[in-house]
Amino acid sequence: MSEIFAACSCFGLLMAMGTYQLARAINKRVGKEVCNPLLFATLLCGAVLLGTGTEYDIFYENGGKILEFLLTPATICLAIPLYKQFKLLKKNAGAVLAGCVAGVAAHMAGCALMLFIFHMEAAEYISLLPKSITTAIGKGLSEELGGFPAITMATIMLTGLFGAVAAPPLLKLFRVTEPVSQGLAIGTSSHAAGTSRAVQLGEIQGAASSLAIVVTGLLTVVAAPVFARLV
């Protein structure tokens, strides 16, 4: 089976797009998001590769890398919502900055705490630093600082999925009711995956969450190299 896949130049591309689209079709049929397309596609592609004994490299070389190649231009385009919502950002600039700084500081303190509790290796600890930010930046940052991009990816995915599922009840429990704050909290803690849920909560939440992705990403890019020196 894996020989056939290796011979098909679009195997990886079709697998990734097909499983992703399947999740969207299921959601549309049911009428609400029962399966997260990213998680669904990842698990299904992984299961097919494991089940057929196909190497990940075959998946990546035969189409997978085409999608990954587009990540950098896509991340650059986050400047578009930032530009569109600049007025909102400006009006609440103090709250946006203080909220994101506090969130990033809390995260970095948490990473340092984990370092001392678990006596982690330098590369393992560094892999956790970019966990709250959008995957494209987090993966690049992990590589740059000498972490394991795969561990960073796994942590970022877990973070995003948890944020997307648990944000509404958590915000309610801790009485965060201000729409701008709800959006900032979701964007700062759980990047784009969480933001997809914030958009469902309301337009202001969605806007603030998009802004928080960018601000938190920038803050983390600045703060992570400093905290990486702890080891």
């Binding site: 592609c45 998946f59 890398k65 990816m153 995915m157």
Partner: peptide, 10 residues
């Protein structure tokens, strides 16, 4: 964007 993240996630 989420689709572009699939290969890296796999």
């Amino acid at each position: 964007m989420p689709l572009l993240l699939v290969p890296a996630s796999v």
